[in-house]
């Protein structure tokens, strides 16, 4: 398992290649990447992501370990950025490796659902109209109930 919290961009190609190498017994690799999306009607200048150093790494590691145990993954990767990002930039990625694709897909969704509302990150949107903290969505909390 690898958990990375960093300010600088990551290379999704290199990360995926490294992750997918050396897993001869794993037939499926799933990756998900989150991108800073522009806002309709009120162009986004930047997104600032704050986090809780120490707890962030611990929470992501705990979530990744739960996914590994539950879906018998060969490996899991979580990379999440913080700091100032502009639309189109990659915020985060997860990757999962398992024998067959079903577990890899499910575990990736589980990782995404949990790190959306259980990893200590807070997003702030900066637009021409001003700045505001992104509110959590009830649907993100509801998404956890299916697990």
């Amino acid at each position: 398992m690898r958990v990375v919290v960093q300010e600088q961009p990551f290379d999704i190609g290199a990360e995926t290649t490294t992750f997918a190498s050396g897993h001869k017994d794993m037939g499926a690799i799933v990756t998900f990447t989150g991108i800073v999306r522009d806002l309709p009607g009120d162009p986004l200048q930047a997104m600032e992501i704050e986090h809780y150093p120490g707890m962030t790494e611990a929470a992501l590691t705990e979530i990744a370990q739960l996914a590994i145990d539950r879906w018998k993954l060969g490996d899991a990767l979580v990379i999440h950025r913080y700091g100032r990002l502009v639309p189109g930039e990659m915020i985060m990625m997860v990757a999962t490796a398992s024998k067959h694709r079903k577990n890899a897909f499910e575990a990736a969704e589980y990782l995404m659902d949990y790190l959306k509302s259980r990893a200590p990150f807070w997003k702030r949107e900066i637009t021409d109209a001003g700045e505001s903290w992104v509110a959590s969505k009830a649907e993100d909390e509801d998404a956890l109930t299916r697990w």
Binding site: G34, S117, R118, F121, W122, K123, W133
Partner: peptide
């Protein structure tokens, strides 16, 4: 969060080194 673990407002503080307050998280 108490000592970097998410908890609730009933959590005891005996022996605790660090408490953090924040809005609901918006990762991903």
């Amino acid at each position: 969060a108490v000592d970097q673990k998410l908890t609730d407002f009933d959590a005891p503080l005996d022996g605790v080194r660090e408490v953090a307050f924040f809005p609901p998280m918006t990762g991903g």
